[in-house]
Design a protein around this nucleic acid. Structure first.
Lengths: 152, 152
DNA sequence: TATTGTTATACTCTATAACTATA
DNA sequence: TATAGTTATAGAGTATAACAATA
């Protein structure tokens, strides 16, 4: 009934906890945005990685996404059914599938990427542009050892 | 097999996406830390909110946590079984339960809070202390309208 | 014998609704 | 009739392991 709850523990205002809450909320916002295109955060990442890699195998994709191969298999099933990507047997090793986006898949990815960028920008709107850059730099520092593509 | 994957889409290095990844990872790190005390992020939050509020009801707690009352009921069952908190009928309205930490529960919470603070500090170690403060300020800005206790 | 990918099974989490008791 | 809380059921998501094909 009270509109102003008791002031809770200071730990709920710490940098680490706010980072947690902000990140989880950012994830939810992006998922909602992608839902309009019948995508999830995961299926969007699949499109992103397949788009930027040549002849990716499912196992290699799973490793990069940090997901179980059976999960990735299901995501690929869906995207293949929708005509967004193709699985083709690797002639050199017929156990492997070479993954590739179709033109339709590339269009879908471009549309989704634009929507995600807009959602992120909206979420970070309370920060000035300079502050967003500063935030990005700090997060790169924190995540450098945890995300392989930041080590460039 | 390649140790250096193809450079992926720039969207994976954006402030918003890095915020997402950092937040989710922070959550995982905190959950791992709390597991050593047989707690989860959620049960720790239950302890935190009950500790800092007087005679909280289950429904009010659920509202503050943003969780379904049935979920909260299960969390309370566990903590009550472990002797960390008590449910007592509200004499003024016998439908309600007044939640309160036991001395054991307060000790558990203090221990867990110290562990969480240490885990956060460790996670943010790549940043100088000044930068951590700056990060915290920026996250307060972003989350001000989304976390009731930041509006102070 | 090891590896890629698929299929089948079981387990966990969560959401929904029905129920009891109090008001 | 409405509210606080519990219990029961069903569904989604995930992990595990067994399997087929290829190396």
């Amino acid at each position: 009934m009270a509109d102003r709850p008791d002031p809770p523990d200071p730990i709920l205002s710490s940098a680490g906890y706010l980072l947690l809450k902000a990140g989880v909320k950012m994830q939810a916002v992006i998922d909602e945005t992608l839902a309009a295109l019948d995508l999830t955060g995961r299926s969007f990442l699949v499109l992103t990685f397949v788009d930027s890699s040549d002849q990716l195998s499912q196992l290699e994709l799973s490793r990069r996404l940090g997901l179980d191969p059976t999960i990735v298999g299901g995501l690929l099933d869906d995207l293949e059914d929708r005509g967004a990507l193709t699985r083709r047997r690797d002639p050199a090793d017929r156990r492997r599938h070479q993954l590739e986006l179709t033109p339709k898949g590339r269009k879908l990815h471009a549309k989704a990427a634009a929507a995600v960028v807009a959602a992120e920008s909206d979420f970070l709107a309370p920060l000035a542009v300079d502050d967003r850059d500063r935030l990005r730099e700090m997060l790169v520092e924190v995540m450098r050892t945890r995300l392989p593509w930041l080590d460039a």
